[in-house]
Simulated scan of single mutants.
Amino acid sequence: MTDMASPGAGASVVMATCSDERHPPHNALDEDERSFWVTTGLFPQEIVVKLGKTSQVTKVRTLTANVRKFSLEYCDDDEPIGFKPAFEVELGDKGPARLQTEVHQVNCRAKFLKFVIGSGWGDFASVHRISVF
């Protein structure tokens, strides 16, 4: 099964509400789970991923740390506008040093996916990996 959110499949980060030069948004798509995108201390924070092509999305996997409220929105337009909700969850507190692994079944056709961190368990949260199937 091909990860449609990988740079090799043509995916890229087209927008993020915050950026740290040591932990930039594109780190959320690379295969190294030790690299990550980090929020800058305020919530909500968003990252928008453009898939290589409009695709049927059935599963989303995320590896995060310190995320409390998390949601996904999707858009199948050629521009990232008119997002629709896919899901919203509250993650358990594992502490800032432990990764939260989440797998969500979805059913949407998307060109863009917006990942929203509504709140964290502390001042900062991180996204280590986003995978889309």
Results as ranks from 00 to 15, higher is better:
13 V>A: 05
9 A>W: 02
57 V>D: 00
42 L>D: 13
9 A>Q: 10
127 V>I: 15
91 L>P: 01
113 L>F: 12
125 A>M: 05
26 H>T: 12
99 L>S: 09
66 N>Q: 15
70 F>V: 01
19 S>M: 07
87 F>G: 01
71 S>Q: 04
93 D>P: 05
102 E>D: 13
104 H>K: 15
112 F>P: 07
83 F>Q: 02
23 H>V: 00
98 R>Q: 15
116 V>I: 15
87 F>K: 06
86 A>M: 10
41 G>E: 02
75 C>W: 03
122 G>F: 08
128 H>Q: 08
64 T>L: 14
110 A>C: 05
107 N>S: 11
97 A>P: 07
41 G>N: 12
66 N>S: 15
131 S>C: 11
89 V>G: 11
66 N>K: 09
29 L>A: 08
86 A>E: 10
132 V>M: 01
88 E>H: 03
34 R>C: 04
106 V>E: 03
97 A>I: 12
83 F>A: 02
75 C>T: 10
45 Q>D: 13
118 G>P: 06
92 G>S: 13
132 V>D: 02
99 L>D: 09
46 E>F: 03
13 V>I: 14
88 E>F: 06
106 V>I: 03
103 V>Q: 07
17 T>G: 03
91 L>C: 13
111 K>F: 00
70 F>N: 00
74 Y>R: 05
5 A>P: 04
93 D>Y: 05
13 V>F: 02
91 L>W: 05
36 F>R: 03
1 M>Y: 01
23 H>S: 09
66 N>D: 14
61 R>K: 14
132 V>C: 03
106 V>F: 11
68 R>H: 10
45 Q>T: 00
120 G>A: 04
126 S>C: 11
125 A>D: 05
121 W>D: 07
17 T>V: 08
98 R>C: 11
101 T>S: 14
28 A>P: 01
18 C>R: 08
71 S>C: 08
44 P>W: 01
76 D>S: 15
80 P>T: 01
65 A>Y: 02
133 F>A: 14
14 V>Y: 07
94 K>Y: 15
30 D>L: 05
121 W>Q: 05
117 I>D: 03
100 Q>E: 06
119 S>K: 05
48 V>E: 02
127 V>P: 06
3 D>Q: 05
